[in-house]
Structures are given as structure tokens and as C-alpha cells.
Amino acid sequence: MTYRVLTRIGLVLGTLVLIATTACRPPSAPASAPIAPAPTSGGAGLAHDFVASPVVVPEEQNAGPQRIVSLAPMATEICCALGLLDRLIGRTRYCDYPPAVAAVAPLGALNELNVEVLVTLKPDLILISGTSRAISDRLRPLNLTCEWLPDNRLEDVFDAMTRVGELCGRPKTARRLCAAIREDLAAIATRYRPATPSRVLLFPTTLTTPPTPPYAAGPGSFYADLIALAGHKLALNDTQQPWGPLSLEYILSTDPDVLIELDPDGASRPGGDADALAAWSRVGDLKAVRERRVRVLRGGQHYLPGPRVAHTFEAICRAISEPPR
């Protein structure tokens, strides 16, 4: 869902194609030691980078399919977090993390998939995010083993990791990974627990100049789940869609406490928050502008409901909790 929505609103992201509570919840008395924390990629943050530093249960090291193709960055990162980087034989051109995936053969993107090359690779398993009909129609006649991974909600992250673990002979590794990420999320939520909830709007792109109605994350998106987990709430009503444009008049009327934009590479907001504040000041009299609580989150990882979701959660928590600049 995330990829399909963002491509419809014209985002060109160099880091993504796009975009189970019980199954992934850590057991009350684990039979073996928990997953060892990987170093963070953000310095002093609480979120660990399990994609760059996976830990595999020893007995599962040699299990599972040997030839995997990933047609989504979130699927690629899940594979790497499960220690399956050496099994990847194909990826999209947007799959660029961890850096070592650059050695894996690129196959284009969803709408430009090189099916001929894909067939010659003879994959045991193809992983795809969402339920794109376009890619389904192209792959179905090929009689290849494909798995579509859920990518809408926060719990879908854990469902997807669990499913890949099952398919690739690493169910224990997947359970430990889910448990470790849940621990990161809980620790971050505790650190940033607010005294008073803020009303937030989050936009997967930056506001244009002059301002035009921007797309926003709504109820049913994994961003909404993260904001709720942080103790805050979307400045939207529950009847709105997970993704959709908001009129400038609606934004003025709802008057959120915090505005958050996503900028994949910093190109749209080279000046960071200051640039975003200047852009949103042209919309009208907004509380977030008056109180200088307009934030920009940089990085393609913030578009992916995958193993680095705790990094996005921590960035959102920090953006909301930081004092005005």
C-alpha cells in the first residue's frame, strides 16, 4: 500500500519501491537467550539496526530457500534482518540498504520489472509488498513461487517478518527479531512519553510552493499507529482514509499542534525545519507555525514498514517532543 500510494502522488524515492500480535510476541519464558542487540545507526538513539547486524539462531543457519528475489525494499530489509542477504539473487533498483545489497542483481522496479531476467534467475521464492494487481498480473503466468507481504499497519511489520521467517526456515530468528523490535519500540515510547498528547499531521512529502493540497497519512496507516504508540493522535477524524489529500482549508480548521514532513534525501528541504516552517507559514495562521513545531524527517527508511520501523518511531517521537526552535 505505501509504495502504491506514494507513487500515485508523484514521489520518486531512491530508497524504496514500496511501499501479528500473537505470532510475534516474545514468549513469557524463552527457551534460549534473546537476540543480541545490533548497534544503532543513529548514534545515541534507542533503536537498533537489525538490518545491518542480523543475529541468526545457529540451528537455522542453513535452512530455507537458496535463491530469493525481493521486489520491495521492505522485503529486502526483512531478508537481511533474518540473515538472508547471501540468499538474495535479485532486487529492485530502489533496494539500497544495507549497502551490501548493491552486489545483488537489479531487476528494475514494479512497473518496469525485467521479467525475462527474473525468469532466468530461477528463484525459489519471490517476495513482494502489498497486493499490487499490476505485478500480480505479470507474475501469475510464470508459475513462480511468490509471497505478498502486508505493509499497511504497524502490526503488518511483524506479520511480514514472521511470514518470511516461516518461508525461509528461520521462524525462531523471526520471533526473536520481532521481540527485539518490540522492545525497542517500548523503550522509545517510555523515554518520550508525553505529559500532554499533541495533535499531529504527517505528510509523506513536502509542501509545494505555492502551497497545494498535500497528501497526509491518515487512520489505518502505520504512521497513525506509530503516532498513537507515542501517546499522541492524528489531527484527523476516524472516517478519513489511510492516505489522501487534505485541503489547505481543512488543515487550517483542524489547526494541528505539530506538522511533520518526510523528505527522502533532503533535496526538497536543504534548510531542514527552517525551510518547512517558511513553506507552511504561507498557508495561514497555524498553531504549529506560531509555535515553530514544523519538522522534517530525512531518510528513505522512514517510508518503509520494515525492520527499521523503530528508527522511524524514534524520529517521530523526537520531532514531536523537541521544543520550538
Rank of each mutant, 00 (worst) to 15 (best):
R290K: 14
L248W: 03
N143A: 15
L185E: 11
A36R: 13
A224I: 09
V5L: 09
F50T: 09
A47C: 10
L248Y: 03
T76Y: 11
L16W: 00
H311V: 02
N114G: 03
S221R: 02
A187L: 08
T15G: 15
F203T: 11
A228F: 02
T208K: 09
L234I: 01
R133V: 02
R93H: 08
P106C: 07
G130M: 04
C95E: 02
A179T: 01
E166P: 02
A31M: 09
T254Q: 12
P211R: 11
L71K: 07
P194N: 13
V294Y: 02
L207S: 10
P245H: 13
I89S: 00
D265E: 09
Q301R: 01
D124I: 03
T205N: 12
R282D: 07
M74S: 14
A102V: 05
I181T: 05
P307F: 01
G14P: 14
L185A: 14
L118M: 09
T196R: 14
R269C: 14
P264L: 04
R182I: 07
V164S: 05
N237H: 06
L167R: 12
T21A: 14
P171C: 00
T190D: 11
A36D: 06
S253T: 11
P305E: 04
L154I: 03
Q61T: 02
V12I: 10
G10N: 08
I9H: 15
L6N: 13
P264Y: 10
V283H: 05
L277G: 01
D263H: 03
L277D: 05
P305A: 14
Y94R: 03
G271Q: 12
P26H: 12
A44H: 11
V200A: 09
A72Y: 05
V17A: 15
A278Q: 11
D275P: 01
P256R: 05
